[in-house]
């Protein structure tokens, strides 16, 4: 039985909810059990956003992620808040353009990706989120161009089809980042 719990967090507008939705959709397309739960409370109104995603081979119990196996922290308040919650042996992805400090935990694996800078340098607007997701998928050994293309086709509405390419580029850029 395999289950992975993800927590995405950052400022509102960084595409936190979308990044989680993409991952949940990808899981669903691969016939896995999935759940996606956004924060919608007072903290959201204060400008920070987070969402819980669970991918599982069994039906998902609680959709609330309190001990993430994978944490994506796209700003400092998120890292400060959730670093201690990560499960031992877990993985933390940090947007190192916006988070200057290092992760203190020694029992987790950390990847520092200057995603916001990479997005700006490559004319990818605000797709730092997808750059990190690209890296995340490659680290988890789940980067699969076909599945990614199908999933993007589902989560991006036909009206916004012009965004397919940039999203694919952002994911690729993240996956290739060493």
């Amino acid at each position: 039985m395999s289950q992975t719990q993800f927590l995405f967090s950052g400022f509102g507008g960084q595409g936190i909810l979308f990044a989680g939705k993409f991952l949940a959709y990808k899981g669903m397309m691969e016939d896995r059990q999935v759940s996606w739960l956004p924060s919608y409370g007072p903290e959201m109104r204060g400008g920070t956003a987070s969402c819980s995603v669970i991918l599982s081979d069994e039906p998902v119990g609680s959709p609330i992620v309190t001990r993430p196996d994978v944490l994506v922290a796209m700003n400092l308040p998120s890292l400060d808040k959730f670093e201690s919650a990560v499960a031992p042996g877990g993985i933390i992805f940090v947007d190192s353009t916006l988070v200057e400090r290092k992760v203190q935990r020694t029992d987790v694996t950390t990847y520092y990706i200057p995603a916001t800078k990479m997005a700006a340098d490559n004319n990818l607007g605000n797709l730092a989120n997808m750059i990190i997701v690209g890296k995340l998928l490659s680290v988890l050994g789940e980067y699969d161009a076909d599945s990614i293309a199908t999933t993007l086709g589902k989560v991006i509405s036909a009206r916004k089809a012009n965004l397919l390419d940039v999203n694919r580029t952002a994911l690729q850029l993240g996956a290739d980042f060493e």
């Binding site: 949940a24 669903m28 999935v34 759940s35 996606w36 956004p38 919608y40 998902v60 959709p63 609330i64």
Partner: peptide
Amino acid sequence: DGTMGQMMEP
């Protein structure tokens, strides 16, 4: 409840 309303599942 709020969780059921806000969460996404297949």
